[in-house]
Protein backbone atom coordinates (compact mmCIF):
# COMPACT_ATOMS: atom_id res chain seq x y z
CA UNK A 1 0.00 0.00 0.00
CA UNK A 2 2.69 2.38 1.08
CA UNK A 3 4.73 1.72 -1.96
CA UNK A 4 1.78 2.31 -4.26
CA UNK A 5 1.26 5.79 -2.80
CA UNK A 6 4.93 6.52 -3.23
CA UNK A 7 4.78 5.19 -6.74
CA UNK A 8 1.83 7.38 -7.57
CA UNK A 9 3.61 10.36 -6.09
CA UNK A 10 6.55 9.65 -8.26
CA UNK A 11 4.43 9.16 -11.31
CA UNK A 12 2.49 12.41 -10.85
CA UNK A 13 5.28 14.51 -9.41
CA UNK A 14 5.15 17.01 -12.22
CA UNK A 15 1.45 17.60 -11.73
CA UNK A 16 1.85 17.81 -8.00
CA UNK A 17 4.54 20.39 -8.46
CA UNK A 18 2.19 22.40 -10.60
CA UNK A 19 -0.40 22.18 -7.86
CA UNK A 20 2.00 23.33 -5.16
CA UNK A 21 1.65 27.13 -5.57
CA UNK A 22 -2.13 26.93 -5.36
CA UNK A 23 -1.93 24.69 -2.35
CA UNK A 24 0.50 27.06 -0.73
CA UNK A 25 -1.82 29.96 -1.42
CA UNK A 26 -4.70 28.24 0.30
CA UNK A 27 -2.63 27.20 3.26
CA UNK A 28 -1.06 30.60 3.76
CA UNK A 29 -4.00 32.86 3.08
CA UNK A 30 -7.03 30.74 3.89
CA UNK A 31 -6.08 28.11 6.46
CA UNK A 32 -3.41 29.74 8.59
CA UNK A 33 -5.56 32.82 9.32
CA UNK A 34 -8.30 30.47 10.51
CA UNK A 35 -6.39 30.01 13.72
CA UNK A 36 -7.27 33.62 14.33
CA UNK A 37 -10.79 32.55 15.29
CA UNK A 38 -9.35 31.48 18.59
CA UNK A 39 -9.35 35.11 19.66
CA UNK A 40 -13.14 35.11 19.63
CA UNK A 41 -12.95 32.87 22.71
CA UNK A 42 -10.31 35.00 24.39
CA UNK A 43 -10.02 38.47 25.80
CA UNK A 44 -7.62 39.37 23.06
CA UNK A 45 -5.00 41.92 23.94
CA UNK A 46 -2.91 43.14 21.03
CA UNK A 47 0.28 43.42 22.95
CA UNK A 48 0.00 40.27 25.02
CA UNK A 49 -0.58 38.31 21.85
CA UNK A 50 -2.94 35.45 21.12
CA UNK A 51 -1.47 32.90 23.53
CA UNK A 52 -1.09 35.15 26.55
CA UNK A 53 -4.60 36.56 26.32
CA UNK A 54 -7.12 35.15 28.76
CA UNK A 55 -9.78 32.59 27.83
CA UNK A 56 -13.28 33.95 28.23
CA UNK A 57 -15.34 31.17 26.68
CA UNK A 58 -18.46 32.33 24.92
CA UNK A 59 -18.55 35.79 26.45
CA UNK A 60 -18.40 37.60 23.15
CA UNK A 61 -21.03 35.38 21.56
CA UNK A 62 -23.28 36.30 24.45
CA UNK A 63 -22.53 39.97 23.88
CA UNK A 64 -23.76 39.68 20.34
CA UNK A 65 -26.91 37.83 21.30
CA UNK A 66 -27.65 40.35 24.04
CA UNK A 67 -27.24 43.28 21.65
CA UNK A 68 -30.74 44.64 20.96
CA UNK A 69 -29.66 45.30 17.38
CA UNK A 70 -28.27 41.83 16.71
CA UNK A 71 -31.45 40.59 15.10
CA UNK A 72 -31.72 43.70 12.97
CA UNK A 73 -28.16 43.26 11.72
CA UNK A 74 -28.58 39.57 10.94
CA UNK A 75 -31.90 40.27 9.25
CA UNK A 76 -30.37 43.05 7.13
CA UNK A 77 -27.56 40.77 6.05
CA UNK A 78 -29.82 37.82 5.23
CA UNK A 79 -32.40 39.92 3.41
CA UNK A 80 -29.86 41.87 1.41
CA UNK A 81 -28.07 38.64 0.50
CA UNK A 82 -31.28 36.84 -0.37
CA UNK A 83 -32.69 39.63 -2.54
CA UNK A 84 -29.36 40.04 -4.18
CA UNK A 85 -29.30 36.34 -4.97
CA UNK A 86 -32.87 36.37 -6.28
CA UNK A 87 -32.09 39.13 -8.76
CA UNK A 88 -28.47 38.44 -9.49
CA UNK A 89 -28.86 34.74 -10.18
CA UNK A 90 -31.38 34.73 -13.05
CA UNK A 91 -30.25 38.00 -14.67
CA UNK A 92 -27.12 36.66 -16.44
CA UNK A 93 -28.97 33.55 -17.62
CA UNK A 94 -31.56 35.68 -19.35
CA UNK A 95 -28.95 38.00 -20.77
CA UNK A 96 -26.78 35.12 -22.00
CA UNK A 97 -29.70 33.50 -23.81
CA UNK A 98 -30.58 36.86 -25.36
CA UNK A 99 -27.01 37.26 -26.51
CA UNK A 100 -27.12 33.78 -27.93
CA UNK A 101 -30.30 34.50 -29.83
CA UNK A 102 -28.98 37.75 -31.23
CA UNK A 103 -28.30 37.33 -34.95
CA UNK A 104 -26.49 40.57 -35.71
CA UNK A 105 -23.05 39.47 -34.55
CA UNK A 106 -21.33 42.87 -34.60
CA UNK A 107 -23.96 44.53 -32.50
CA UNK A 108 -23.96 41.59 -30.12
CA UNK A 109 -20.24 41.80 -29.60
CA UNK A 110 -20.48 45.52 -28.94
CA UNK A 111 -23.24 45.15 -26.34
CA UNK A 112 -21.38 42.28 -24.72
CA UNK A 113 -18.20 44.30 -24.32
CA UNK A 114 -20.06 47.27 -22.91
CA UNK A 115 -21.86 45.06 -20.43
CA UNK A 116 -18.54 43.73 -19.09
CA UNK A 117 -17.20 47.18 -18.32
CA UNK A 118 -18.83 47.99 -14.96
CA UNK A 119 -17.42 44.77 -13.54
CA UNK A 120 -13.94 46.23 -13.75
CA UNK A 121 -14.75 49.40 -11.86
CA UNK A 122 -13.98 49.54 -8.17
CA UNK A 123 -16.77 49.72 -5.65
CA UNK A 124 -15.52 53.10 -4.53
CA UNK A 125 -15.94 54.53 -8.02
CA UNK A 126 -19.33 52.89 -8.44
CA UNK A 127 -20.49 54.26 -5.10
CA UNK A 128 -19.34 57.78 -5.95
CA UNK A 129 -21.17 57.61 -9.27
CA UNK A 130 -24.30 56.44 -7.47
CA UNK A 131 -24.08 59.18 -4.87
CA UNK A 132 -23.77 61.78 -7.62
CA UNK A 133 -26.55 60.32 -9.74
CA UNK A 134 -28.95 60.03 -6.83
CA UNK A 135 -28.36 63.40 -5.18
CA UNK A 136 -31.66 65.20 -4.58
CA UNK A 137 -30.33 68.58 -5.66
CA UNK A 138 -27.82 67.91 -8.43
CA UNK A 139 -28.32 64.27 -9.51
CA UNK A 140 -29.57 63.42 -13.00
CA UNK A 141 -32.09 60.92 -11.79
CA UNK A 142 -33.78 63.43 -9.56
CA UNK A 143 -33.63 66.10 -12.24
CA UNK A 144 -35.49 63.75 -14.53
CA UNK A 145 -38.03 63.02 -11.82
CA UNK A 146 -38.54 66.75 -11.41
CA UNK A 147 -38.94 67.32 -15.16
CA UNK A 148 -41.73 64.80 -15.19
CA UNK A 149 -43.28 66.86 -12.42
CA UNK A 150 -42.66 64.89 -9.25
CA UNK A 151 -40.93 65.81 -6.01
CA UNK A 152 -37.26 64.78 -5.79
CA UNK A 153 -36.62 61.57 -3.87
CA UNK A 154 -33.87 61.50 -1.22
CA UNK A 155 -32.75 58.05 -2.24
CA UNK A 156 -29.72 57.79 -0.02
CA UNK A 157 -31.43 59.16 3.05
CA UNK A 158 -34.37 56.78 3.00
CA UNK A 159 -33.86 53.42 4.63
CA UNK A 160 -36.45 51.77 2.39
CA UNK A 161 -34.45 52.62 -0.75
CA UNK A 162 -31.13 51.21 0.38
CA UNK A 163 -31.63 47.59 -0.70
CA UNK A 164 -33.08 48.57 -4.06
CA UNK A 165 -30.10 50.78 -4.82
CA UNK A 166 -27.60 48.25 -3.58
CA UNK A 167 -29.03 45.36 -5.57
CA UNK A 168 -29.92 47.25 -8.73
CA UNK A 169 -26.41 48.61 -8.99
CA UNK A 170 -24.99 45.16 -8.23
CA UNK A 171 -26.99 43.66 -11.09
CA UNK A 172 -25.78 46.39 -13.43
CA UNK A 173 -22.23 45.77 -12.29
CA UNK A 174 -22.15 41.99 -12.46
CA UNK A 175 -24.66 40.84 -15.02
CA UNK A 176 -22.50 41.24 -18.11
CA UNK A 177 -19.47 39.51 -16.74
CA UNK A 178 -21.48 36.66 -15.25
CA UNK A 179 -22.86 35.76 -18.68
CA UNK A 180 -19.47 34.39 -19.67
CA UNK A 181 -19.92 31.04 -17.98
CA UNK A 182 -23.36 30.58 -19.58
CA UNK A 183 -22.12 31.60 -23.00
CA UNK A 184 -19.45 28.95 -22.70
CA UNK A 185 -22.06 26.40 -21.75
CA UNK A 186 -24.24 27.50 -24.65
CA UNK A 187 -21.40 27.06 -27.09
CA UNK A 188 -21.17 23.45 -25.98
CA UNK A 189 -24.77 22.61 -26.86
CA UNK A 190 -24.83 20.15 -29.72
CA UNK A 191 -26.05 21.90 -32.91
CA UNK A 192 -27.65 18.65 -34.01
CA UNK A 193 -30.21 19.11 -31.27
CA UNK A 194 -31.32 22.38 -32.84
CA UNK A 195 -31.50 20.77 -36.24
CA UNK A 196 -33.63 17.98 -34.85
CA UNK A 197 -35.89 20.47 -33.10
CA UNK A 198 -36.29 22.47 -36.29
CA UNK A 199 -37.21 19.27 -38.14
CA UNK A 200 -39.92 18.76 -35.60
CA UNK A 201 -41.21 22.24 -36.33
CA UNK A 202 -39.96 24.06 -33.23
CA UNK A 203 -39.76 27.85 -33.54
CA UNK A 204 -37.14 30.05 -31.89
CA UNK A 205 -39.03 30.18 -28.64
CA UNK A 206 -39.59 26.43 -28.47
CA UNK A 207 -35.95 25.81 -29.33
CA UNK A 208 -34.87 28.07 -26.50
CA UNK A 209 -37.21 26.38 -24.09
CA UNK A 210 -36.43 22.79 -25.00
CA UNK A 211 -32.86 22.85 -26.24
CA UNK A 212 -31.00 25.93 -25.05
CA UNK A 213 -32.14 26.04 -21.46
CA UNK A 214 -31.83 22.32 -20.71
CA UNK A 215 -28.40 22.50 -22.27
CA UNK A 216 -27.12 24.86 -19.65
CA UNK A 217 -28.84 23.35 -16.62
CA UNK A 218 -25.61 21.83 -15.21
CA UNK A 219 -23.93 25.22 -15.35
CA UNK A 220 -26.95 26.79 -13.71
CA UNK A 221 -26.90 24.32 -10.85
CA UNK A 222 -23.20 24.77 -10.14
CA UNK A 223 -23.52 28.55 -10.19
CA UNK A 224 -26.59 28.26 -7.99
CA UNK A 225 -24.70 26.36 -5.31
CA UNK A 226 -21.64 28.57 -5.52
CA UNK A 227 -23.71 31.71 -5.21
CA UNK A 228 -25.76 30.31 -2.38
CA UNK A 229 -22.58 29.87 -0.40
CA UNK A 230 -21.73 33.46 -1.08
CA UNK A 231 -25.10 34.84 -0.05
CA UNK A 232 -23.67 36.38 3.07
CA UNK A 233 -20.52 37.56 1.38
CA UNK A 234 -21.84 41.02 0.76
CA UNK A 235 -19.53 43.72 -0.34
CA UNK A 236 -18.50 45.71 2.67
CA UNK A 237 -17.30 48.61 0.56
CA UNK A 238 -20.62 49.38 -0.98
CA UNK A 239 -22.70 48.99 2.16
CA UNK A 240 -20.23 51.17 3.98
CA UNK A 241 -19.99 53.83 1.30
CA UNK A 242 -23.68 54.08 0.49
CA UNK A 243 -25.01 53.74 4.02
CA UNK A 244 -25.32 56.57 6.53
CA UNK A 245 -27.07 57.17 9.82
CA UNK A 246 -30.34 57.85 8.02
CA UNK A 247 -30.37 54.42 6.40
CA UNK A 248 -28.55 52.48 9.09
CA UNK A 249 -31.75 50.58 9.85
CA UNK A 250 -31.38 48.66 6.61
CA UNK A 251 -27.79 49.33 5.64
CA UNK A 252 -26.05 48.07 8.78
CA UNK A 253 -24.94 44.57 7.85
CA UNK A 254 -22.61 42.21 9.65
CA UNK A 255 -19.49 43.45 7.89
CA UNK A 256 -20.17 47.13 8.62
CA UNK A 257 -20.98 46.27 12.20
CA UNK A 258 -17.79 44.25 12.52
CA UNK A 259 -15.88 47.19 11.08
CA UNK A 260 -17.39 49.55 13.63
CA UNK A 261 -16.91 47.37 16.67
CA UNK A 262 -13.76 45.56 15.64
CA UNK A 263 -11.65 48.08 13.78
CA UNK A 264 -13.03 51.41 14.95
CA UNK A 265 -14.04 50.24 18.39
CA UNK A 266 -10.97 48.11 18.92
CA UNK A 267 -12.80 45.00 20.24
CA UNK A 268 -11.15 42.42 18.06
CA UNK A 269 -12.46 39.43 19.99
CA UNK A 270 -16.03 40.60 19.75
CA UNK A 271 -15.73 41.27 16.03
CA UNK A 272 -14.32 37.84 15.30
CA UNK A 273 -17.05 36.20 17.35
CA UNK A 274 -19.69 37.90 15.20
CA UNK A 275 -17.92 37.02 12.01
CA UNK A 276 -17.51 33.39 12.98
CA UNK A 277 -21.21 33.09 13.79
CA UNK A 278 -22.04 34.37 10.33
CA UNK A 279 -19.56 32.00 8.74
CA UNK A 280 -21.33 29.09 10.43
CA UNK A 281 -24.68 30.19 9.04
CA UNK A 282 -23.07 30.47 5.62
CA UNK A 283 -21.66 26.96 5.86
CA UNK A 284 -25.08 25.63 6.83
CA UNK A 285 -26.61 27.28 3.79
CA UNK A 286 -24.19 25.85 1.29
CA UNK A 287 -24.30 22.41 2.87
CA UNK A 288 -28.08 22.18 2.68
CA UNK A 289 -28.13 23.55 -0.86
CA UNK A 290 -25.69 20.88 -1.94
CA UNK A 291 -27.77 18.18 -0.26
CA UNK A 292 -30.90 19.30 -2.05
CA UNK A 293 -29.18 19.52 -5.40
CA UNK A 294 -27.74 16.03 -5.02
CA UNK A 295 -31.15 14.64 -4.20
CA UNK A 296 -33.02 16.44 -6.96
CA UNK A 297 -30.54 16.40 -9.80
CA UNK A 298 -27.28 14.62 -10.40
CA UNK A 299 -25.05 17.65 -10.10
CA UNK A 300 -23.43 18.66 -6.83
CA UNK A 301 -20.26 20.28 -5.67
CA UNK A 302 -19.02 17.29 -3.70
Amino acid sequence: MKSTILKRFKKDRNYLLLLAPVLLYYILFKYVPMFGIVISFKDYNLFKGVWESEWVGLKYYEWFLRNPDAWNIIRNTLLLGLYRFLFLYPAPIILAVLFYLMRWKKYRRFVQTVSYMPFFMSQVVISSILIMLLSPSTGWINQMIQWVGFEPVYFLQKAEWFRTIYIASDVWQQVGFSTIIYLAALAAVDPQLYEAARMDGAGRWKQTLHVTLPGIVPAMVIVFILQLGGILELSFDKAFLLGNVATIETSDIVSTYVYRTGIIGGSYSYASAIDLSMALISLLLIYSANRVSRKVGETSLW
Binding site: P68, D69, V245, A246, D252, T261, G265, S267
Partner: peptide
Amino acid sequence: IGPANDQIWKYWTTETTKFIF
Protein backbone atom coordinates in the same frame (compact mmCIF):
# COMPACT_ATOMS: atom_id res chain seq x y z
CA ILE B 1 -19.68 48.82 29.15
CA GLY B 2 -18.47 46.63 26.30
CA PRO B 3 -20.14 47.41 23.01
CA ALA B 4 -22.91 49.44 24.66
CA ASN B 5 -21.43 52.73 23.50
CA ASP B 6 -21.70 51.80 19.85
CA GLN B 7 -25.16 50.33 20.34
CA ILE B 8 -26.58 53.41 21.96
CA TRP B 9 -24.87 55.64 19.40
CA LYS B 10 -26.56 53.74 16.62
CA TYR B 11 -29.91 53.96 18.37
CA TRP B 12 -29.99 57.65 19.12
CA THR B 13 -28.52 58.75 15.80
CA THR B 14 -30.94 56.62 13.78
CA GLU B 15 -34.00 57.70 15.69
CA THR B 16 -33.02 61.35 15.91
CA THR B 17 -32.45 61.44 12.17
CA LYS B 18 -35.91 60.00 11.66
CA PHE B 19 -37.44 62.66 13.90
CA ILE B 20 -35.64 65.45 12.09
CA PHE B 21 -36.64 64.17 8.65
